[in-house]
Every structure is written in C-alpha cells, then in structure tokens.
Design a protein around this nucleic acid. Sequence first.
RNA 1: GGGUGCAUAGCUCAGUUGGUUAGAGCGCAGCCCUGAUAAGGCUGAGGUCCCAAGUUCGAGUCUUGGUGCACCCA
Length: 1250
Amino acid sequence: MFSPVEGQVSFPKLEEATLRFWKEQAIYQRSLDQREGAPPFVFYEGPPTANGMPHPGHCLTRTIKDVFPRYKTMRGFRCERKAGWDTHGLPVEVEVCKELGIHSKEEIEAYGVEPFIQKCQKSVWRYMREWERLTERLGFWVNLDEAYVTYHESYVESVWWSLKQLFDRDLLYQGHKIVWWWAQGGTALSAGEVGQGYRQVADPSVYVKFPLVDEPDTSLLVWTTTPWTLPSNQFAAVHPEIEYATVLVVREGNHGDTESTEDGAEKLILAKDLVEVLAEKTKLKLEVVSTCTGRDLVGKRFMPPFDTYSTLSAKEFFSIGDGPQGAPFDDTPLFDLKSFITKDSLSKESKHIGWRIVPAVFVTTASGTGCVHIAPAYGEDDYNVWFFEVFDPFGGYCNPPLMNCVGPDGKFTDYAPEFVRGRWVKDCDKDIARNLKERGLLFHQEQYLHDYPFCWRAEEDPLIQYPRESWFIKTTAFKDAMLENNQAINWMPEHIKAGRMGKFLESNVDWALSRERYWGTPLPIWQCDETGQQEAIGGYDDLLAKPGVAGTEVWEEAKAADPTLPDDLRVHKPYIDAITYDSPFEKGARMSRVPEVIDCWYDSGAMPFAQWGYKGEGRGTGDAGRGNSEPGSVSSRSEAAEKFANQFPADFISEALDQTRGWFYSQLAISTMLWGAQPAGNPQSEIPNPQSPRPTPPVPHPFKNCIVLGLMLGEDGQKMSKSKRNYRDPAEIFDLYGADALRWYLLTNQPPWSSIRYSEQAIKDSIPEFLLRLWNCYSFFVIYANIDGFDPKAELSGAKPPSPLGGGARGGGTVSPGVDSSCTTAANSTESTSKTPSAGRVTPSPNPSLQGRGIGADRFAAAESYRPIADRDELDRWMLSELHRTVALVTERMDAYDNFGAGQAITEFVDGLSNWWVRRSRERFWSKDKRSADKLDAYWTLYECLVETSKLIAPFTPFLAEAMWGNLAGVFLQENGGDAALASVHLADYPEADASLIDEALSERMGLVRLIASLGLRARQEASLKVRQPLAKVEVILASTEHQAWLAEHAGVIAGELNVKAVDFSDEPEKYVDHEVLPNFKLLGKKLGKLMPKVKQALNAQSGSELLANLRDNGQIDLVVDGQAVQLTPDEVEVRIAAKPGWAAANDRGVVVVLSTELTPDLVREGLARDLVRAIQDRRKEIGCEFTDRIEVGVETDSDDLRGAIEQFGDYIAGETLADKVTPASITGAEEIAINVGEAASQLGVRVVR
RNA sequence: GGGUGCAUAGCUCAGUUGGUUAGAGCGCAGCCCUGAUAAGGCUGAGGUCCCAAGUUCGAGUCUUGGUGCACCCA
C-alpha cells in the first residue's frame, strides 16, 4: 500500500518534514559518499558576506548553484560543495563604525585599532544564522560545517603565499592610485560613497594657451574645468587620429594686416571640428591656416602655464618626497632634462620629462578644444599618461615623483605659485584664471555645468582627485594570457566573453591591491627601515623563523587578557604590525611591515587554492627557508596540495552580472598569474615558480563554465531595497509558498541571465502551474492504486494481490523464478534489462560507475503484469515515448547548463501526462476488472512516469521529488539492506533515455489528435452543443493525408474526447472546405528572387481547387509570370484549407473538423442520461460518498424524455455512478434536491446503500 | 562621458540560419467539463514588435543612427 495522499497538500509543511528527513538520514553526506571514487565535478562557491541580510536575489544565486551539483551527482559525479564566507573589507568596517557612531579613520585610530578589529571579526557573523537558515531551507546542499572563511589564518597565509610568489617575480610594485579624496576629512571615498554625492554645479571652464617652444606665435589651445590643477601641469594630450587645425585669430581692427603686425599674429592649434564652435563662443573669426592629425603634433614642446616645476633643477626635483637623498641628478633645469636614469632607461628613447604633446585615445571632441591639459596627480587618465611616458614600475627611488603642489589637506603647498600658497584649491580657480589673463595666456573663459561629487558626510565639501601611494599587481603583463584564458571559458550568456569581460580585459590596468584600512588581509611585505628594501613573507611560521624576531608578545598578551580571542586574529592588524626582525639588507637595521591591507577582491579570487590553505606543493621543493616547522604541518600541507590538485579547475561557478569585474576577474587574474603561461618581457616573471612545479594547466582555469546571472529587481522594477519594501523576506516566501515554488519559478521562468523582476504572484503561480498539477497526477495514482491494490513490489515478487474477479487477462498466481528475493539489489537490475533493451541510449552516462541506483523500468520489467511497451495501448506508448523524449531533452539541456530549456521540457511533459494521458485514461482506472491487462498497463505506465519524473525533477524541486519518491519507491524499501537509493531520490541515478522507445511519428500523430479534439470542442462551442450531448459523427479533413490512415485507426480517442459516435475522414473535402495555395517562401525565395511577389499574386488570382487539380494531374503547378514560365513542385507550395461557411466547423494548421449537428431522439436521451450522471456525481460528493460507496438513486420528473433516458440508459447510469438501482420516481430515505437536467426541472434523491 | 546588455499583449516573458497569420503563461470576459475537483478544458478581447533610415523579393529578426531603461567603468 502507498501512503494515502492528503487532499489538501501544504508544500511548506511537506518541505519542513523533508528537511528533517534529510538531516536525520544524512542524505547529503550519503549522496557524496556514494560517489566515492567517481569522477569529480568541481564546484566553487563564490563567498557571500554574512554581514548583511539575505534577500530573494541570493535565493536565485543559491538555487542555480544547487541545481547543477545535484544534477551532476545524480549523473554519477562526485561534487563536493565547500561553502565559503567573504569576511574582510570596508563594508564590515562601516557596519562597526555605525555601531560605534564614528566615521573617519582618525576616529577609528582614536578608538583603537585593536578593539576595532576585534569588533569587525565579531560583526562578520551578524547575519550568519539567517544565511544558514536560508541556505538550508532553500534546499541548497553545501558543506557549511567546513566552510572556508577569508579571515582564518590558514586562508590568510595561503593568500600571503600567493602574494609572495608575485612579489618574488617582480609583479608587485608601489605606485600611485588616484582616488576621490575628501581633503577636509583626510580620507579616500569608495566608489559607492562617491556615487551618492554627485550634484550639478557650475565650474569655471578655461581655454588656455600653451605657447609652443619651437613655433613662435603658435599655441596649443587646451581646455580644463579645474584651473587649480594647472600649476601641476606636465603634458598636453591630443588624440592621434583626430584632425587638428592651426587657426589664425582675426581680431577686430587688425583684420587684413595681421602679417604686418608682429604682435597681432596669433595662431592656435585645436581640433578642427571645434573651430566653429569656439569661433561662435568667442565671437572671433578663426581662419584655418593648415591642418594635420594629432599624431603630427606629438612630441612638440610647450611652455607650461606656470613655472612651478619647470624651473626646478633636476636634483631638487628628484629629492621631493620621502625617497632617499643623493640620487645622481645634477643642476639641469627640469624643463631641459632629457631622459632620466632608471634601470632600463638606456634602452628607452630619450624624451623630455614633461611639457611636450603626447598622444592619448581618451581625448574627444565632445567639448573643449580636443587638446587636454594633463596633471598626472589629479586624474586617472592623466596618471596613466604619466605612467606610460615616464614611470618605470621597478625603477625604485630613481623614479620621478609626481608633480603635485597640493597637500593632502587640499591646500596649495610651497611649491605652488606664491599667490595661491596655503589656500584651498577650489577657492583659487578665479585667481588662477585672472593670473593667466594678466599674462595673456587665457583665451576664453565660461561657466560649465556638470555633475561633480561632494562628500556624502559633509555636503558642502567637494571631493578632489588626489594621488595616494598604493601597491599594484602588474596584471597588464598578463593581458594576453588572461584574454586567452577568457576565450576558453564557456560563458553563459555567451556575449560576456567578448563583451563585458573581454572588453574589460582589453582595457586592463594594473590591479591596485592595497587599501589604507584596518580589517583585511595584511599585505605581507616587510621593509628595511634604513634602506627601504623589501621582502615578502609567505607564512606566519616563516615570519617567526626570521632572525631577531620581536613583537610577538603583543598578540600573546592580548590573548592572555582575553582567551576567547580567535587565534586567527594574530595574522591581522595590529598584532602582525608589531612583529619586526633583523634586516638582511643593512646591519643593525630592522624590518617592519608596511601598513596596508589588501583589496578583499584578492581574497575571494584566491579562493580556488586558499579554501584549502594551499601554500605550495610541500617541503623540499624550494621552500628551503623553513627548517623548524612542526611535524604535523607537512602532512597538512601536502593534504592541502592534494585537495587543490583534485579540485582545480572548477567545472562550474555562477554569480550575478556584477561579479564580472569582481570575483570572475579576480579569480581569472590570480590563476593566470600563478599558473598560466608566463609573459615575455619581464625576466623575473619568466622564472618558473619554484614552489609551484605543477605544469601550466590547460586553459581555461580556474573555472570552465560560468553562468552569469541577471540582477534581480524589486517588485516595482527598481533595485531591491529594504526601505522600499519591494520584495518579501525569503523566510516568509518559504512559509507561504515553499522553497520548491520559489525554485521552480527561478529556474524555469526565464533564462537565468535575463534580469529578473521579483514577482510574488509568479512564485505563487508556479504552484498550480506545475507543482500542484504534478501532485494531482501523483495523488490520482495513489488513490486508485490503493483502491485496486496495485502494489509494484507485490507485482514484482510474484505474490499476486487477491483478485476478486479471478485475475486479469494473463492469469495470476505464477511466480517468476529469480526475481522474488533479489529484486531490490542493484545487480539484479542489470540482469533484467533483457526485456527492455538498453541499446540505443540517447545520452550515455558519462560515468561507468553508474549502477542504476533507485528503481526504474529495468526493474519493473521483471513483473509478470508488466507488459512490453510495444504491446500496450497507443496512449501508453505515446506517454512513454514522451517520457523518454523528455529525459533525452532534459539531460541534453542540463549538460549544456540550460536549466530553463530543461524546465520547459519537464513542464510540457507533465502537461501531457496530466491533461492528456490521465484525462484520456481515467475510464481505464474505473474498470471493475482489477487484473485486466489494460488496467495494469495503465498502472504501470503511470507509475513509471511518476517514478521517472520524480528523478527528473529532483535537482529542480528537491522536496516535491523526495515526497513523491518516498511514497512511490518507498514500497520497495526494506527494513535493512537493499538499495540505499530507495530511501531518497537524491541517492538515485538520473534517468537515461532509451532511444528505442521514442516514437517521433507517434508524437506528431498524437499532436494531431489533440489538435482535432481541440478543434472539435471549438466547433461544438460555436454551435452551442454541450460536450455531454452525444453527436452522430464528426468529419475530419486534412490538408496532408500523411497520417490519415493512422488517425482513422485510432479515432476512438477522438470520438471519446468529442463525445461523438463516429469519426469520418471525409473523401469529399470540397463540400466542406476551400483550398488556398500559398508559395513556400523559404524554398522559393532563393529560386525566384524578385519574381516572388508576382508569383504570390498569380497564385492568389487562381482558385485553390484549380491549382490543386493542376498539382494532382501534372505533379506541378505551371504559371506564367512576366512572360516567364514558372513551375512549382508540391514541396514549393503550401496548401491551406479553411472551412466553408455554413458548417459547424473549426480549422487550424491544415486540419478542419466539421460537426454533424443533427440530433436523433436516441442521441437526445443519451445526452440526458449523461447529464443525469453528472447530477448524481455532484450529489455523491455533496453527501460525502467514498469513491467505492454504492448508492440507490431516485429521479422524479415531468420530462418524458428524461424518463425515457432512464429507462433506455439505466444500466449505463448505474454503472457510471456505482448505483444498485436507478428509479424514475422518488425513493425513501433520501433527501430530494432540485436538479436541472436538459431543459426540465426534476427532483433527485441519492441514498448510500449500507 | 565610455563599455555591455535590454526594449514584443494590461503584467511576466518566448520568438530558431530573415520567409509573409508574432506566440505562451498570468490577469480579464464568456462557455464547457468534472469519480484528480479550492483542479481541468475551450474560446474571446488585447500588439505601431521603442523610433527612423537602410539592406532584401521579403525585416520582430540583419546594418546604421536615435530614444528610454539597467549594469559596469569613468
């Protein structure tokens, strides 16, 4: 017996019970154990941060991350799923600051770094419980118990190890990062903070003349909206491809005699396209003298607008800043300094250090002059120009300092022109313009309206772009390698590859690694306090092993004072900063750590190896410095190496679109740098990594397939926001609708990469649309199987259930030898495949270790009552063909990571099962003969479909699948031993399609049957003929007679569905339909080209019947178009038919169904009988009859027709309603109710017979 | 300002290598069926396929330009 199915199912309740079952039975762990030794399917969890509350968007990510590992596990792979948590970074600090009511770095310092980071560490887990609950309740199977955590010591050390690799290969360097700087607060703002503070303001916009050194009276005309940056000018940039014009300025009064007046002959260079615009603005005539491209201007030298730096001597200039004194420069004025000394400057073409025209592709002619003033300290583009023109990342202290006459307080320093010194830069714009005007350098001035960022904490403070010292990773050296790696990744959607990610990689700039913050992985670089020389440390033990190490007591004392402090904190600020050691570079000097922590994106990108604490391949492979590590570390280190080797690269990852430049990039970059082919041109980086002897892995790595999810928007189409309340808390969704409803909605409503709008209604709708529909099929099966005592286990063991009607068509009681005792072992299932040949599998399992876990057709075939599919009814063959077609499609789609396509296939299948197979098969379940072959076929067919469906949907809706499986397969479960998969569908193997059972022709034909039925119903409606009223016949006319013979043989289904006595395939279609012959555009387009429209006209002009006759008689249609003979073959035309007016008919897609509307008295009485049956059935339900209760019926009526119907169809009525007696008069013991049968009002009494 | 996407029914979205009648689900309206029944079926109304130009015998689909929205980067 199957457990009875509740009439009113509550999916949330069902799911809670399933969760308990999974937990108690450790199903997830068993699903892994079961695949011990199987090929791995590697999944990486992109770490979320538990520092904020999860919302429905996270449900999408976690659903996608769950469905494929579940699927692959069922397909025979071992898929470990190590969870992870992203724990470092600014958002954590901001949370803690909020809690403390403080903002600035000064305030943090004042509060104390030590207590601050202790608070950060605790804050990281603030919403941990919510995240764990969400993860579990959604059914996301992931190993939370052994999650990696980015602040853990082993993780931090693994990151250190990787940074040491980069440092030792000269891929880490110090430079500047131009940041948005809040001068008054003395801190940089993150992109998010800057974004909040944009306001529209009017700034001065100045057009300044930069006189050319070698061309008298000619100036480059540059444009800027930040006059205060002009004293730090170093270059002017032009676009190499843009056309520039040299114009003569014609002022009033000097027109015509410019050549004679030396002073008035003023020439300017600007973009040709902007000459008119500028002439209009200045009301001056600008005569174009000559033109050239930007490239021709490159290299020309100009006089800077201020002599701030140009008049300094090289010696003075190079000693600016903190760098060591004594660099080998002389008294040459900087303006004249040609070339400067760096370690590879000898190979470089010598160039002046500044005040020359340089090319830059970011220059546009959208506004200004097409000539851009470059002050490298105050803009990222500007800085990049400088970086490219004069900076050598590894030039050390010989590199020129940035020209920057503004202090971090936003005020001009002593290097600036005297009239602005000590003043806030933004206040000086006007004075600077006035000064330029006085010196004749200002050509034009105006107001410029644009968006400019202000500090979100101090609204009156404008931000400025300002350089900060920063550490960089030389990712640009790996641009080609990253592009190659990217090329090999299977991005979904595909446009990410060449689009967002490809474009991003092509414009790659070096990774700004460091952050001047507190809660992050400390940058593991120690610097000599005498010489400034540096080295990287690859692990905490390595640090302790350094000579003269000191400062460890700071941590030890903190730990002694508070033993609850996690040991992981010892590798964090401020404890790690306290540790110093003897400098190997200078006797007596000490090494101490640089103050920065690193970008937490680096943490996440290091996850492929850091999650295992990987620190190289183990001892003896170049790790000579370590002599005193603990004995245990060797094995753990090699264990990490083994784990890493086994779980790299990932087969599958997924996150939302915003991770393109986040986690997707950080992983790609780090993996390419550590393990990819090394770039040429950087001698150090070509040295093979001594600690990583593993061969360069084939691209792509570290992930092969990546689904890039769309962003989820709130109900109103806006960004999801807590304050707008445009979404519901996931926990409530689970309680109201259940996780399966949410999962199904997320997985099948749209391709995962289209941006998705949270829709509560759509989540709700997935219940009736899919979950409940399937549940009804399942419930239908269980109800009847229990009534009839259909028990597949009993069928298989040969012990036939008692058969009141003396057994079915095949007789009963015989026992199949060899199947009774071993039917639940996996081994047996392979033996029994002889009945259903396994040849021709559509999607062979990738894993030979699959053993057909769980139950399926292979096993059922051993039952006596299980007839070969070929012997069964057309409807059953069709359903099983659909099943296998669906299995093939779903596996094919899922192998291609297309959950959406797979889901659609499942939906279609369940629709067919529910709305066609069950609908058309109901009567078979009502038949009295419990052992008839037809009835048993129906049971086996439905049972098999439901069992396979529960496996099919297991990755999508794991709870519903488990509930169905638990009952359907549960009958096979033995007390001890047997196939473990019988306990949980998630331990079963995924279904495999049997190609021999797929019958495409049958599919097509059944589609036609459904079409005919649908058309018949439509025709009935138009003629107002209820389906309950039987009709004599329908005529079916087909445009193509290909399937007519088959349909004629299987007209029973149509007749039943349409309630007609006969289905005729008309041999005189002309009576009912008009023919229309249309060209097949696809075929004829190529053949006819421009004649096409005329051929269409010609076909229109003739009658369809004539053309058809032509086609029948000659095998082709002959036309003359434009005097040209045109022949059309049958393939090249399409014949359409339409019902002639005057018939109760409907037509669509080449099928016309015509109703015979004539009603005989017999038909009328039969219709009344059926109507009465309906009324009695309604009554049965009203008085609470069980399905099997027998009744007595009395009908009192004035209608002769109805009395006649009861007389004529009494047996039919009794049979349909399980009535012992149907009397055409009132009966005793039954309440009489009024009913409407036919036109007449009557009284009905129904009484249960006890 | 740049890059990348998206724009189709009231809503959410499909729409193949270009093929002439643009589909589905929900919602709405009407009808039907009902021994799965707080399900199910049929039908209807509802469209400037964002706009414009181009390529083509033919454009929702391809090209160019524009508009709007989103994300990323400035």
